[in-house]
């Protein structure tokens, strides 16, 4: 279980796909936020976060999602979260999303094409 987070970025059909590997905790939260900020400043309009290889995600990871959604702007939280989709979270991450009510705001997919098609 590594303590660092690796983030690989690809552009697919105009969407930024971030493939995360490692934990998203209070130690790595900023790494994710900074990468998202860099992409949004570079013109990214929509983002898929592939969580397949995320070993752990707690409240710090969800705060990062909230902050990234806020970077996109929008009249309300639903409009902001519309720019971010999640792919392949583990059952543990899904439970955390549900416990903190994020499942009401952010869409979760098991298929990349479906996630991209949902924007």
């Amino acid at each position: 279980m590594s303590s660092t987070l690796e983030i690989a970025v690809a552009e697919e059909k105009g969407v930024s796909v971030l493939r995360l590997k490692g934990p998203v905790d209070a130690n790595t939260q900023k790494d994710l936020e900074e990468k998202a900020d860099e992409l949004i400043r570079g013109g990214a309009k929509n983002m898929v976060l592939d969580l397949k290889e995320v070993s752990y995600m707690g409240s710090a990871g969800l705060r990062a999602l909230h902050i990234i959604a806020g970077m996109f702007g929008g009249d309300d939280q639903s409009a902001r979260f519309a720019h971010v989709k999640l792919l392949n979270p583990s059952d543990e991450v899904r439970r955390v999303l549900k416990t903190l009510g994020f499942d009401n705001y952010i869409d979760v997919f098991d298929d990349l094409d479906e996630a991209i098609g949902a924007f």
Partner: peptide, 18 residues
Amino acid sequence: NLRSSLEKDTPGGFGLHL
């Protein structure tokens, strides 16, 4: 209060809730 916290720009209290 989850819903009102999520509507804030800088939500807090997630950790203790978990």
